[in-house]
Design a protein around this nucleic acid. Structure first.
Lengths: 358, 358
DNA sequence: TTGTAAGCGTTATCAT
DNA sequence: ATGATAACGCTTACAA
């Protein structure tokens, strides 16, 4: 039952012997070195194929000082947003012949540090952090001299006035909230609430942006409610968190929260959008399939992953990272916060896959 | 602006010099070798810490013939089921100090072959394939001598009478369909349909199981409809695929399809479950949040990933893989196919997180 | 055009 | 208890 392949792994030396050349020649032949004669090149290739030779990249990397591997740290692989970022990242990396090492750090700083160490141990050629609480400077320090790209940084530093550091990729939260809030105002809503999860920086960022826009556009206050980050498993609690008096409309931190809220509202007997309108953030795939379908701010998650990988691949020097990128987002109007009556919805509102994607 | 850490990476030799010992001693001290004296051990550790030494695992692996890395091949990281399998896999691997290399092969056989080659090139200590169309024997051959575990194999071979090979982890499709179909029969449904996606083996397996159970339990025929694997983006088409006359109930290939179908049925003016009941398969997180909430067969996806990793970690010899494992599944009754009137639902039917998980 | 030999950073063997 | 030294499998000066 054992196939034709030998148990012992074939080394370059074996190929060289079979082709009747030195290891150096074999190596050069396989790497397509122009100085090797046509004939020996073919001979070596044939030998390699015949033996089923697969190079040992650890050995190669040891000498060539490149591993053709990238590290990706994220909080949770089963999260739809992170999954899409990871998918885009992996796709771009694989297209360039790179391999991806993924570590889930579950938003625990100590695990995040360990993840970065794992990348350094493996000498990856670049590291991407997706939405981490770690201080970006510390992270960059830890993975040096590998370049580091941070997607959706979540350190409190982003709340300050400082410019984003090079190698940062973010979405335009402010624009997203502007579109969401203006849409609700146009729909006649006045008592608008923000439902946040946790106290992480991105949540604060979105909450503040919504508050500002509402203030500037209509001089109205924003009601801010908040639930702990891990309480999404209890949808009724989300509805209850909105307080004894239900607002006209709710903007949620993200779609996961919004979809859970839809469920909680239904349990509590509220109708969406008649009793209260709901807007999400991210446009995860199931946002288009909920009942009512979720109006949400579409973020280009797979594109962010792709961009992160491409940035790393294009960056040999960790100190030469490109300036921060802020990606545009777009409100997708669906049923949970429909267009004001009498106004035709824009074409994109019906699309399952948002325009800005990959 | 450049921190205290040196640009050049610290090698073991540097630590040895600083501690005033040989490289061999330094290596042994760091690996906690009992023969090294207390004092030198501390000295070496101090030196390592002071210099910020991080070992090079490629070099280590070259000599020690173990990489502390596992390979995971899946079709798509942004798929909820695969994401959960990957999350469970990564968690178990990380807990054992292992790192995971993930390659998405998008169900393309040629890419699957490349993925396996990538794992061999990197000499991973074990490989897991999640739901692949590749011939398991070919796969095992390709990754030899690393052990291979296959989660939810999808090769047509599984349709035959052959026993599953060692190192296989599957869910009990037959039992799942039995629970689903019996539940529908108990609810008074007679005209039952199966809505499948694609023609892959698992789809055929589920379809056949449903057919058999329906035949054996009630001597009724199963209506089988099918849509191409990539047509889930058009929910109305799914509803239309059920034919001109709507069945009493539909069992879907998986939850993604079922949730899309719910949307399509709503678009077409059908009420669920009044006009037609719908049952899914997998119990992905959003199945509990749809409207109506989805009745579905819960599969222990994170557990499968965890089990796969643990199996690999426990298997030094590729030829000593454990016998196939078939994991139990459990129907979770929700609104899209509710309990027959007058019968109290079991406790688990209300749980958000199914019992069998992780 | 090809071969020889040194080296990548570790760990393991064999001394001492 | 510690040190030399030889691997591990590959690439790349330097030679020829």
């Amino acid at each position: 039952m054992s196939g034709p392949h030998p148990r012992q792994r074939i080394r370059l030396a074996d190929v060289a012997v079979r082709a009747g050349v030195s290891r150096a020649t074999a190596s050069r032949a396989l790497s397509g070195d122009r100085r090797i004669s046509e004939s020996t090149r073919d001979a070596v290739r044939e030998a390699a194929a015949a033996l089923g030779y697969v190079p040992n990249v650890a050995a190669r990397g040891l000498r060539a000082r490149t591993t053709q591997a990238l590290g990706l740290m994220l909080s949770d692989l089963s999260d739809p947003v992170h999954g899409q970022v990871a998918a885009g990242f992996e796709l771009a990396a694989a297209a360039a012949g790179y391999t991806v090492i993924i570590v889930a750090a579950h938003d625990v700083v100590e695990q995040e540090r360990r993840a970065l160490t794992a990348f350094v141990e493996r000498s990856v050629d670049g590291v991407c952090i997706a939405s981490s609480a770690l201080d970006p400077d510390e992270a960059r320090e830890r993975v040096a001299p590998s370049p580091l790209v941070v997607v959706q940084p979540d350190h409190e530093r982003i709340l300050g006035p400082d410019a984003l550091p090079p190698g940062t990729i973010r979405t335009d939260e402010r624009s997203g909230m502007e579109q969401a809030v203006r849409h609700l105002l146009a729909g006649g809503h006045r008592d608008i609430a923000y439902l946040g999860a946790g106290t992480r920086a991105t949540n604060v960022l979105r909450s503040r942006a919504a508050e500002q826009v509402l203030r500037e556009s209509a001089d109205l206050p924003l009601r801010v409610s908040s639930v702990p980050e891990d309480s999404w498993g209890d949808p009724r609690a989300l509805a209850d968190a909105l307080g004894p008096r239900m607002p006209d409309a709710v903007v949620c931190y993200d779609d996961k929260l919004a979809l859970a809220l839809l469920d909680g509202l239904r349990s509590r007997g509220f109708r969406v959008p008649d009793d209260v309108a709901v807007v999400g953030f991210d446009d995860i795939p199931f946002a288009a399939l909920s009942n009512p379908r979720l109006t949400t701010v579409s973020t280009p998650t797979p594109l962010m992953g792709r961009l992160a990988a491409e940035t790393l691949l294009a960056t040999s020097d960790a100190l030469a990272l490109p300036p921060p990128v802020v990606l545009p987002v777009q409100l997708v109007v669906r049923e949970s916060a429909p267009q004001a009556a009498g106004v035709a919805p824009p074409a994109h509102a019906r699309r399952l896959v948002p325009v800005a994607r990959g």
